[in-house]
């Protein structure tokens, strides 16, 4: 289908952007990579009055390593994340996730911020952000605020972003000593949205797990940290018993979700399987 009519504007600065967002409020949508938004427009699933194209604001893109932190600008393309040596070194979880994100042409345009703000329940980057305990800096005409990832993703396509606001950066802590990351995703075909997946970040030191963040996605609404499963492995080594113990309580952590592609029971089962695989993958990583 052809997109419905809308007005388009390309601000040259953040200031202009905030003015426009303030002026048009809910009538405006932000155009970053466009890989989700333009598809929705083409299907007439969305009919905004105004599109605010932020692609011209250079300061919004970039990966910056400073101290123990990695800051990812909202306009950083998936492709940049995929090929960045800094990401591979300091945020290996994201490096592991990127090949699963759609296909090369989509990664060339798609943006980090777009993925976070769109918050598709089966997307990889929101789950990685959750597992890594990222913080998002959100700007608007009235200033900036910081929101932790666990407070940012609220539900199905629902985030803490309010009308007039723009996601600016994601702040991540570089992977620390003794920590490993692992990523597992199940999709029907390469590049499809996940049936279910898990982004995992944990310490494995002295032969035991600790401080595990197991972020499941494809489970219905927002990505979910499996707290009970994390508790079940804390202080324990990788073993069949540890895996089973974690799998047994995983059900408590995940919402029941059923859709066209899998029933609730299937998803629960697949989540358990991926949990086992990601726990094994964690210990196979070198920290």
């Amino acid at each position: 289908m052809k997109a419905p009519a809308f007005a388009y504007v390309r601000p040259r600065s953040l200031g202009e952007t905030f003015e426009l967002l303030d002026q048009y409020g809910e009538d405006a949508k932000i155009l970053a990579g466009g890989q989700s938004l333009i598809a929705a427009l083409n299907m007439r699933l969305s009919a905004p009055r105004v599109l605010v194209d932020i692609n011209g604001i250079a300061e919004l893109a970039g990966i910056r390593v400073a101290g123990d932190g990695v800051r990812i600008g909202v306009l950083t393309r998936h492709r940049a994340l995929e090929h960045s040596p800094e990401i591979a070194r300091y945020l290996p979880l994201i490096h592991q996730a990127m090949p699963h994100v759609a296909h090369a042409p989509i990664r060339n345009r798609g943006s980090f911020g777009g993925s976070i703000a769109f918050a598709d329940p089966a997307a990889e980057l929101p789950a990685c952000s959750l597992a890594l305990g990222a913080e998002f800096v959100i700007g608007s005409k009235s200033g900036e605020r910081r929101v932790a990832a666990r407070d940012f993703f609220k539900g199905l396509y629902e985030t803490d972003l309010r009308p007039g606001e723009l996601l600016l950066v994601g702040d991540f802590a570089a992977i620390g000593a003794g920590y490993r990351s692992a990523f597992q995703e199940l999709a029907r075909r390469h590049g499809d949205y996940a049936l279910v997946g898990v982004a995992a970040h944990a310490k494995y030191e002295g032969g035991v797990y600790s401080d595990a963040a197991l972020a499941f996605f494809g489970v219905g609404g927002a990505p979910v940290l499996a707290q009970s499963a994390a508790a079940a492995i804390a202080g324990r080594p990788f073993s069949d018993e540890t895996v089973v113990a974690a799998q047994r309580v995983l059900e408590q952590d995940l919402p029941t979700h059923e859709d066209l592609h899998a029933s609730a029971g299937t998803r629960r089962h697949l989540a358990r399987v991926l949990l086992g695989r990601v726990l094994r993958q964690l210990v196979q990583q070198r920290s």
Partner: peptide, 15 residues
Amino acid sequence: FTPERILRALGKTGE
């Protein structure tokens, strides 16, 4: 033969 159907046939999903 989706994964779901296969898992059901194998008795893995509890359904």
